[in-house]
Amino acid sequence: MKIESINYTLAAAQSDTQRATKGAVQSVSAAGALNSTVNLSSMSALGESSGSDIDTAKVESIKAALRDGSYKIDSGNIADGMLSTARDLLQARSRI
């Protein structure tokens, strides 16, 4: 069985993407989107509202330890975490 090769250039891919995007925009316009509004927020504004999720004191202490060279990396803890993640992924895969 022979698999035929397809020469698909980047320009053709971009052209297809532009046509698909243009078609989608036209179909949305045609669907009566005159009464719709869209509000976009910057990512920085989104991050400000959930600032309590980050322990800034801990972040600053880690930065200081990195600067002065006193930060110690526990390679055993990292390895345990990686193995645990691998086990979880394998168990999730076997359930499927």
Rank of each mutant, 00 (worst) to 15 (best):
Y71E: 01
L89Y: 12
I73P: 00
A64V: 00
S75A: 07
T85P: 05
S44N: 13
N39R: 12
G76Q: 03
D80I: 13
N77V: 14
K72M: 02
G23M: 05
D88Y: 10
A45M: 12
L89C: 10
D88N: 09
D55I: 03
L34P: 06
A20P: 12
R19T: 13
V59K: 00
A24N: 13
G47V: 14
S27A: 14
L40Q: 06
S52C: 10
A45P: 05
D55F: 03
A79M: 13
Q91P: 07
R87L: 13
G81N: 11
V38I: 09
R19H: 14
E60M: 01
A30K: 14
S52E: 04
T85Q: 04
Q91H: 11
L40H: 12
T56Q: 04
D68M: 06
V28R: 11
A31P: 01
Y71R: 03
A33S: 06
Y71Q: 05
R87P: 06
K72Q: 06
V38K: 05
D68V: 05
G32N: 04
I73H: 02
I62F: 03
N77F: 13
S29A: 13
A31Y: 04
T17S: 09
M43K: 11
S61K: 06
S50C: 14
S42R: 11
G69R: 01
L66M: 04
D74W: 01
A86W: 07
S84E: 06
E60A: 01
A86T: 12
A86H: 08
G76M: 07
S75F: 10
Q26V: 09
S29T: 12
V59M: 00
S70C: 04
A79Q: 11
T37D: 04
N35E: 07
D68K: 03
S70L: 02
A86N: 07
S50G: 06
A30L: 09
R93D: 06
L46P: 04
D68C: 05
S42D: 12
A45E: 10
L46Y: 08
I62P: 00
D68F: 05
S75I: 15
D55E: 02
D80K: 10
E48P: 06
D55R: 01
S61Q: 06
L40M: 11
N77W: 07
A65Q: 02
L34F: 09
A64F: 00
I73T: 08
L83C: 10
L34V: 14
S52W: 08
L46M: 09
A31V: 08
D55W: 05
T85A: 08
K63L: 02
N39W: 10
L66P: 00
L46V: 15
A20F: 09
S41Q: 09
S29Y: 14
A20S: 15
D68I: 07
T17L: 13
Q26T: 14
T37P: 04
A57C: 05
S41F: 15
G69H: 02
S49V: 10
D80P: 04
M43E: 06
T17Q: 08
S70Y: 00
A45L: 08
G76S: 11
E48D: 12
K72I: 04
